[in-house]
Amino acid sequence: MMKSAPLLILLFLLVSGTPLVVFAASTSDGAALSSIQNAFAQVSLAESKGANITLQVQELNQALQLVSQGEAIQQSNVTLASQYYSQAESIAAQVQQQIPQSIAQGQAAATLSLQELSAFLGVLALAGVLVYLFTGRVLWRLWLRQHRDWTVKRGE
């Protein structure tokens, strides 16, 4: 009876679906790096849509640094290493949350930039038409104003 106790416990855990390795899985460097990779993919996508990703890149580098710190002490202090990995995962999740807003801001900025270019080219085109139509008139009006004190004399 006593010998079968561990087997029964194992069977119970398997049947009940109790996650045996939840703590380890969510606090390993692999899980943290995977989160960072997912966040990076989102950041890359956001950038392609015109988002300013400077802040997100800084945060992800901070997360990578935490993973490196965790790896450095993995053998000597597992608890602290796990804390570093958890922090890195939190940062990655935070970055992912920021993405939709960054994309929206980026798209707005890209639209504004295109509008500015369009307005600039439009003003130039208008200036071209005005130059073409009125250069002669303006030029001679200026010439006349410049020479208004001139008098016409009969030649000798």
Binding site: L124, A127, G128, V131
Partner: peptide, 20 residues
């Protein structure tokens, strides 16, 4: 008159190209 008009239009075209 035509020369000045030509120069001004060239400057405008150049500005447009630089911007684009």
């Amino acid at each position: 008159e035509d020369q000045i008009k030509g120069v001004l239009l060239a400057v405008i075209l150049l500005l447009g190209l630089i911007g684009a």
